[in-house]
Amino acid sequence: MMNSPIITFENLSIGYHGEPLLSGISLTVTRGSFIAVLGSNGSGKSTLLKTLLGLIPPVAGRIALAREPGASFIFGYVPQTTNLDPLYPFTGFDVALMGAYGRVKPGRFVPGGERTFTRECLEAAGAQGFAQTRFAELSGGQKQRVLIARALVTRPDILVLDEPTSGVDAAATHAVLEFISRIHREKEITVLLVTHDLPIVRKHAQEVVWLHQGRALHGPVAEMLTPERLMSIFEMEVS
């Protein structure tokens, strides 16, 4: 099943209130790939992410998700830690357990098996040591590990990470990205990473989708991040 399409963007236009911000996006995300979505502020990264996750409808075109008959497509979504209000007195475990809520019907309590699985995911993400600490009190890197554990608890078809290194220092960034790369390799899980950090993309991603001037450019990292290509994108010299 590796290299089979998992997400296909078919002549997609995205934007708000019928006004396209990006148009003519046609690309395929293959199963088991590690794709980075790059772009400057305002280029449409967040809009693309919101459209993919189903938060806003496409202006035109469609997104085809490869799912088993009768099954739903699960996004293992990892938000920016700054998007989550520190007022909520959830522990790290409480936050990670939310990943199981998609499988537990409303009105039912979370079964013991799901709690055990959540502990396993926290352990895999290196977050078991602070799972009982209040989430708001954790550092940026620790929060990211808890949120990655939560995404794993969903048993995702794809991991979607929204600028996971935002607000996280260099050492924690390195650790978080190494962990994501490792689970990508070991679990053969598809990863979609939204970022503006070129060194991270060079080191970890296989393909790049670059959002630039209303278009989405797609290709392998080796092709997309050559100095010549970067020059043409930025219209300036990059050494």
């Binding site: 938060l55 699960i74 979504y77 939310m98 809520y101």
Partner: peptide, 18 residues
Amino acid sequence: KELFLVSFDRTMAVTLGK
């Protein structure tokens, strides 16, 4: 659990089909 999820992380709630 649904009310807290929707209040705390709406995007996550949508991705879980809530």
